[in-house]
Design a protein around this nucleic acid. Structure first.
Lengths: 263, 263
DNA sequence: CAGTGGTCTAGACCACGCG
DNA sequence: GCGTGGTCTAGACCACTGG
């Protein structure tokens, strides 16, 4: 056997998915049917479908009326440049919500606040001592009631003491970026890191991820003229989100992508 | 059983990895040993280790002297803003190579050239007719002899007829961005999309990916003052790459991240 | 050769949830 | 109820590769 049997089965099913014979939301044949069709044991069939599962092509639904369902590829576009560019008077939280609504979904967010000792990674980005503490503002973002992304933003403690609102576990109406700017901490530069990796079990729970769903991690460090003032870890479910930014003259882009027009 | 046995086993092994008891490159106990330790059948042990495999924590090496090895987390940082920002006189290919070398690795690239009918996705980004053709320049990038990323760049056919070098299946020494600028097609704006997803089987082969390795996809559309002139699909192996960009005043960032200093 | 993981079989019992 | 996937067992043979 040049190709193991379970890969053969997976290939045929995969072809049916990518070619469109099976469409989003359709169900694969149930396991007993596949055992018949391919004269394979149940474990072999499961090895085959596990491949598709971890490729992110299908998910499994237990119980009668369930089965293996072809995943849909609906993605929310998240504009990382919109809300937070220097001199853009739009609050980032409202910007996120309005983006979601504009794309036809329903949005909600859960805030929480913690005081945390900074890890070495974080200390380096915030340029503070590794043993110091920082304010962590966590925002779990839901789309249509389903968790979609997780944003952890850290502020140095001395900054939070200067801008006390940061210590309140509530949404800041105008957005933290704007608030900081009003108090003389305007961010004028951003350092953005993008990483793709598999989720930790904690992230799997928080975001309700299916197996085979990677994470898009966006780490943004914001700088005033004098120093870094915050670091955001934005953890996005890879199957439901993408990030967009622009560089250069946005007006040119807007001519060809009307949805990018500045508001 | 609140927690299935295979998840229990996976949790204990995972804890040993994330806590550092098992370090990068270390081997997990072999399957027969795990069967003993946990009084489990081989399939159950394999279900457990399959979880770690798909979390990207370990990879499996067949054969004597092999085993399940804790993966290392070495990542190459790719500066998406460096080479291609308007008015930056650095060629992107040389920039990629010098970045790799600066980070202590060895770099090589394979070019190839194709003429392709444009898909609807691509047509939209390039703002051309869906049935027209485009030039595809593919560059497979290797680090230390191992494939690391794959870049497909599409140019509209009429542009390639104006700038004939694009039709040559060879590296363009000064880089295509610079070449285009010299011929009056200077790119002054970029539209960047970031996506995290599992690889297709083709990408798995091309990049030599282990199971549990997601893809970081960076799609960059470049615009002159008049229109989009190219689209690059940059497919990065998630376990070996991250992307960095900056917005705003780079000099401020350079004060705290010396490696970001403009060259 | 001997030990590693890779593949495959044939069965079993369970949890879930639609009809 | 009963069909779906979820978990688990016990065994088998194979391919690869270091010692």
């Amino acid at each position: 056997m040049a190709q193991p049997k379970y890969r053969q089965i997976a290939s045929e099913l995969r072809d049916q998915i990518v070619s469109g014979i099976l469409r989003e939301g359709d169900r694969l044949p149930p396991e007993p049917k596949l055992q018949e069709q391919y004269a394979a044991s149940r474990n072999t069939v499961r090895d085959a479908t596990a491949l598709l599962l971890h490729e992110g092509l299908v998910y499994r639904v237990p119980g009668r009326g369930g089965g293996m369902v072809v995943r849909r590829r609906a993605t929310l576009t998240f504009h990382a440049h919109r809300a937070e560019m220097p001199a853009q008077p739009v609050a980032e939280t409202d910007a996120w919500r309005s983006e979601v609504v504009a794309q036809g979904y329903e949005a909600s967010q859960d805030f929480s606040l913690m005081i945390r000792a900074v890890s070495s990674d974080l200390a380096e980005r915030l340029h503070v001592e590794p043993d110091s503490v920082a304010v962590l503002r966590r925002c779990v973002r839901h789309i249509n009631g389903q968790p979609s992304s997780l944003q952890d933003t850290y502020y140095p403690m001395d900054l939070a003491e200067d801008v006390r609102e940061l210590l309140s576990p509530k949404d800041i109406p105008q957005g933290t970026t704007r608030l900081l700017a009003e108090r003389g901490h305007e961010q004028v530069a951003y350092y953005d890191e993008y990483v793709s990796r598999m989720p930790t079990p904690e992230e799997t729970n928080l975001l309700g991820l299916q197996p085979g769903t990677p994470i898009l991690l966006h780490i943004r460090t914001g700088y005033t003229e004098h120093r870094p003032v915050r670091v955001s870890f934005n953890v996005l479910a890879g199957d439901r989100n993408q990030i967009v930014t622009t560089h250069g003259d946005v007006r040119i882009i807007a001519k060809f992508r009307p949805e990018e027009a500045p508001e």
